[in-house]
């Protein structure tokens, strides 16, 4: 059943580091995080890794496995050949703190820059009425577990530190879309998506969608519709005025 697996794990801090080789036991049914934990318990007690639920629900254990952005707890060892070396590195877009742990504060900053849900005036709590079909679009985006793998992957910031300032990243552009499509939200979010959150920098490569462990169609269902709304506003003042007057958010 069990076998000795070959692992290469990035170890180091903000001052630098490198890949280290390990040979470690792997058992049937295990995921990469199990093996990282075994390393901690048997060989490297101070190996730093974030995790929490171990069931793909909290989005803590994001890293890159053989160069692919993934959750450590949802990557089964059975997808690798027994003689294959499994390389585990921290997310590349965010500064390393130590080993596999990165500083994801960029994401929390961006979250703060998106104006919050604006509740409908005059509708008391308990009186909200919404149809299932109307909430489903935003519900898809609210499946997000904030693993930040999409932001880690997006080339707009992965290779361009300078864009971080002006670009909210797919996760938070999707948050804007989520609020925009919320049936009862009262704020106008279309212009801001473009002007403050950097929607224009996205060139719909869909790389973010590909890595999303929740299989959210970030590009097709959030980013492209937002771009269409921006375009509608620009080129069609009547639609823009209509939207304004009738709050027709769909």
């Amino acid at each position: 059943m069990g076998y000795q697996g070959h692992f290469r794990v990035w170890r180091g801090s903000d001052e630098g580091g490198g890949l280290e080789d390990f040979t470690v036991e792997v058992n049937e049914g295990e995921v990469v995080l199990d093996v990282i934990h075994r390393l901690q318990a048997t060989q490297t007690p101070d190996l730093a890794v974030r995790w929490n639920c171990k069931a793909g629900k909290c989005g803590s254990c994001s890293a890159e496995i053989n160069g692919k952005p993934r959750l450590l707890c949802m990557t089964r060892m059975s997808v690798f050949a027994e003689d294959e070396t499994v390389t585990v590195t921290p997310m590349r877009t965010f500064p390393v703190i130590r080993d596999l742990v990165t500083d994801v504060s960029y994401n929390y900053q961006k979250a703060r820059e998106i104006p919050a849900f604006k509740p409908p005036a005059g509708v008391a709590p308990g009186e909200y009425r919404m149809q299932q079909v109307d909430v489903e679009r935003s519900q898809e985006f609210r499946k997000c577990i904030e693993c930040f793998l999409c932001n880690n992957t997006c080339h707009v910031i992965r290779d361009h530190e300078e864009n971080k300032e002006s670009f909210a990243g797919p996760r938070f552009l999707m948050r804007v879309a989520e609020l925009e499509m919320h049936p009862l939200d009262q704020a106008d979010r279309v212009q801001e998506a473009q002007s403050s959150h950097g929607l224009g920098l996205c060139n719909i490569t869909k790389c973010c969608t590909e890595v999303c462990p929740e299989h959210i169609k970030i590009t097709d269902n959030a980013l492209i519709p937002m771009k269409e709304r921006v375009a509608d506003r620009r080129y069609d003042p009547i639609v823009w005025l209509g939207n304004k007057l009738f709050r027709n958010k769909s």
């Binding site: 919050a116 849900f117 509740p119 709590p125 308990g126 909200y128 009425r129 919404m130 149809q131 299932q132 909430v135 935003s138 519900q139 609210r142 609020l179 919320h182 939200d185």
Partner: peptide, 24 residues
């Protein structure tokens, strides 16, 4: 408990709905 759940809707929560648009 009901007030606390309804309050979440004012924070932006989106629960599954009944046919008449309430929280399922």
């Amino acid at each position: 408990a009901p007030d606390r759940v309804w309050e979440l809707e004012t924070y932006g929560a989106l629960f599954d709905r009944t046919k008449d648009g309430r929280i399922s």
